[in-house]
Amino acid sequence: MFKNAVQLFEIFGFKLRVDPSWLLIAALIVWSLSTSYFPEMLPAQTATFYTTLGIVAMLGMFVSLVLHELAHSVVARAYGLEIGGITLFIFGGVAELGEEPHTPKSEFQIAIAGPLMSLALAGLFYLASGPFIDGDNIGAIGAVLGYLALINLVLAVFNMVPAFPLDGGRVFRAAIWQVTGDVVRATRISSRIGTFFGLFLMVTGAFAVFGGQGIGGVWQILIGFFVINASSGSYQNLLVKNALRGKSARMLMSDLLWTVDADASIAQLVDDVMLRHGVSFVPVLSQGRLFGYVDTAGAGSIDRVEWSTRRVFEVATPAGPDNMVTPDTPLDEVFKRLGAGTRRKLMVADAGKLIGVISLSDLVHYLALQQEIGTPMKTGH
């Protein structure tokens, strides 16, 4: 999801990554605090002083976001769910679950853990700020701690809005799931609320922009756009997972194959296989066993005048875990692998013997047909 994220360190076995987009929000936070919040709270100080406090407060917010997502991750791991890591990005942070929670109870407890952590942090920062506040006299430490108390409270309250995929939306989904026993229906309802909430944010943000609030309104529009896309994407991902659950590559692979021998010339590959049968992806065999594959890019990498003397094995990509699956590989795993990279076809092999090829188009066509026919989907386990 975050291909450009940089890993900083591990905490309790969870990899903490920061997407470059986080740098933008970090800079905006420092700028806003150093030009508005701290000058108002602590007048008659230097710009350097305000900037320093802004950086300290931003780092405090960074730690708060990490702890919020860490709470989600620890509870998820307790339920045996795979955690891909914790990533901070422009809209906050996300604990990357490798799979959906299996029960309404686990969904509820994983979702509620983050806001509870933020509420606890808000309380701790508020109590810690007390000794540094004397009536209207607020010291630098008090101002920073007060800001962190406020931002954690806002984080907790905002995340508890019952709009999927916010934490509150997941809590709401868990409740519907518990009552109906249908995770797809629960996700559809909470996702629609998430879409309406996103639209609300965008509309009110637009009014704010026209009302002269500038950056605040634009930021609200961006958050609304993110919520809409995330809620819709989460629902579609669940539909895909349910449609593919319990099925393997054997079901959708094509066993009508055009292959080429590793010792054949590139001219034979192009003329007798690719052009004759209209295929651009050709598995390569050597003594009856799978050697790898060759595509049009591989053939085109050799000058045409050398095609009759050069051999297929010279341009073939060897078979390996990144381009090959077994017939028993779950379809959702196949879909994940095909969707994550640039490769659109995978060879299906068993004990070194080629038995088929499965493509992304095969999966997309299957999903489209299933949606069109309206085949009932499993709703969880």
Rank of each mutant, 00 (worst) to 15 (best):
A5G: 11
F12E: 05
G13H: 03
K15H: 09
L16W: 07
D19Y: 08
L28S: 10
L28C: 12
L33E: 06
F38M: 04
Q45T: 05
Y50S: 00
A57I: 04
H68V: 02
V74C: 05
F91V: 00
V94S: 02
L97F: 15
H102E: 09
P104H: 00
I110Q: 00
L119H: 01
L121N: 03
L124R: 06
N137A: 14
A140Q: 10
A140F: 04
A143L: 08
G146W: 07
I151D: 06
N159I: 03
N159D: 04
F164L: 14
A174D: 00
V183A: 13
V184G: 07
S190Q: 03
S190N: 01
R192G: 13
I193N: 00
G194M: 04
L201A: 00
V203W: 11
F207Q: 06
F210Q: 08
G211W: 10
G214S: 09
V218D: 10
N229I: 10
S234C: 03
Y235N: 13
L239Y: 09
G246V: 06
G246E: 09
S254K: 14
A264K: 12
S265V: 05
H277S: 08
V282I: 04
V284I: 08
R289A: 12
L290A: 01
F291L: 06
G292Y: 11
V294Y: 09
D295I: 02
A299T: 06
S301V: 03
T309H: 13
V312Q: 12
D322H: 14
M324T: 15
V325G: 08
D328W: 09
F335K: 11
F335W: 15
K336S: 15
L338C: 08
K345N: 14
T375K: 13
P376K: 00
T379S: 14
G380V: 01
